[in-house]
Write a protein that binds this DNA or RNA. Sequence first.
DNA 1: ATGAAAGCGCTAACAG
DNA 2: CTGTTAGCGCTTTCAT
Lengths: 339, 339
Amino acid sequence: MAPDPQHRPATQSDVAREVGVSRTLVSFAFRGAPGVSHETKQAIFEAAKRLGYRPNAVAADLARKHRSAVGLYLLDIRNEIYADVLSGVRTALPQDSNRLILSVSRSVDGVDPGALESLIEARVGIIIAATLLDSDERVQEMARIVPLVSVTRPVRGVDSVYSDDFAGARAATQHLLSLGHTRIAHLSGPVYDGHVVRRRSYEQTMRDAGLAPQTVAAEDFTPDAGQRAAAQMLNRSDRPTAIFTHNDQLALGVREAAYARGLSIPEDLSLVGYDNSRTAHLHGIDLTSVDLHAVELGRTAGTVALERLNNPDAPIADERLMPQLVVRNSTAPVRGTAG
Amino acid sequence: MAPDPQHRPATQSDVAREVGVSRTLVSFAFRGAPGVSHETKQAIFEAAKRLGYRPNAVAADLARKHRSAVGLYLLDIRNEIYADVLSGVRTALPQDSNRLILSVSRSVDGVDPGALESLIEARVGIIIAATLLDSDERVQEMARIVPLVSVTRPVRGVDSVYSDDFAGARAATQHLLSLGHTRIAHLSGPVYDGHVVRRRSYEQTMRDAGLAPQTVAAEDFTPDAGQRAAAQMLNRSDRPTAIFTHNDQLALGVREAAYARGLSIPEDLSLVGYDNSRTAHLHGIDLTSVDLHAVELGRTAGTVALERLNNPDAPIADERLMPQLVVRNSTAPVRGTAG
DNA sequence: ATGAAAGCGCTAACAG
DNA sequence: CTGTTAGCGCTTTCAT
């Protein structure tokens, strides 16, 4: 049935020769272009099938001087929200034109220069990047080379689709405040451009409430890092009664550290994460968290990308979604005067 | 600094013209091919930088009649183990040749014909597929068109990297048996080729123990499906005292259903999942599960893919990894005579 | 060490 | 409706 294992795949020329027409007709037929008689079309498809011919999308792009592939950069595929973003992007992209070229960061805990290089060399038409850790300048520079939509983080002059982190972090902090907590700590990730909004929002909200912010930076954004950082924080005599973390992964780490130390949540420690991952929903986890609507972020990014592809001169997109605090059982009123 | 926004990107010819040499030299220089004087090389790189030239990997592949991209098919990116597989594949692939073209299934709950088509049309050199739901015949047919390594599932005549599901499911079932359970149910996913091993292993292990297997098929592999299926199972008067699920996601659904019904785990219901996802580790979840070493599966698949690329005539790979039962607190001895 | 020329598989005017 | 002719950006003999 199918052709040989590793034989030279059939080309348009092969089909054309088989049918006895020119390559042009074959090309037209496969693209559904008008101007091919029904009969020839039939003959062409038949021959193509017989030969096991498959169009070469790459060669077509080259000839067309057009880039139909979309490049997707994801910071950390193991983090649920990036999987959600990917999944959202997928829904926005047309069923057929699905050449999705992926670049996953090599280092979750740092800038990965050259992460976008492979995407550029693969000549994608546009890059959807979630989340770039590079400096604003560098992102802007990349965007000058290839259309780029920044997801999760706004960058001036670059199409951006993100969530209002300031509002989200403020809601989280205020929630803790309203529960009577005063010793509220924030566990942030390492500091990168565009990654300090939640932290700054927390700090300002604390100060606005007349309290001293206390921020600790984890080594990276993983549960392990969260656990290590929390182990230290919880050892202090004046340990916080509540912790707000940069993301759910970090929060899950804090949770483990708390239990390891014999503290219960929310009785001894209130905990608020960020992302509202599926894990946060689980009975027994019940993590209060801020939903940034990752799937929606991805879907919107896909739409923006498509628009940009169709109209390079469209005004820069700036889509800011509103996050939502989801209160569960990991937070409770502070207990009397803490010890 | 960088060239115009959407200007025509610089090509080798541009660089050649700028320096005053032939395209050949530029090509040689960029590939580090011998036969270019040091001076010309310098001049070329300089000019390239000035013009913002980036090699076009796609055109290079075309000219070289060679496919350097690897295609990756993932059944369900929202499922942690596929993210793990991806992450494992990444580690096995050389740093530079990282053109990873992704195809994510459109429907988690069914066969997605044409999922591999885009990969083929993108002319990838090899496809790493985890997990194909198609029939063995179809997978074999695809493998005849493009080199393919099947991950998670063995397919005769096709490079396969998988875990010994039979052993894993048997260990899980025996664990429950050894705890004194007799009414042990199995929650499987929908039935597809290559996806019935765990179920069959469970059934045989039950029969070997002189017990009647009781298998229920969920609509798909998601927590929601697991919850719905479990809600029904747990409603029966002779409800099982233990449930072994096809994967962790399903198990998490069962867990929610149990709690919703006021049953505690493991007191009223023992639960065993499959995958040993990170969620299973969490305090408060403590899900007993079978670890299939997804990252390792991905890493091995990447290695096999590379070998196949280098040697099309190498014997078919058949890498079977041994899974490992990880016992946690979601399983306990059966209580007296159940009610 | 360098260049000319042919070609990869396909598209796109432009002619018949 | 159908075929001819140039490319797309790059690699690769084969000369010089």
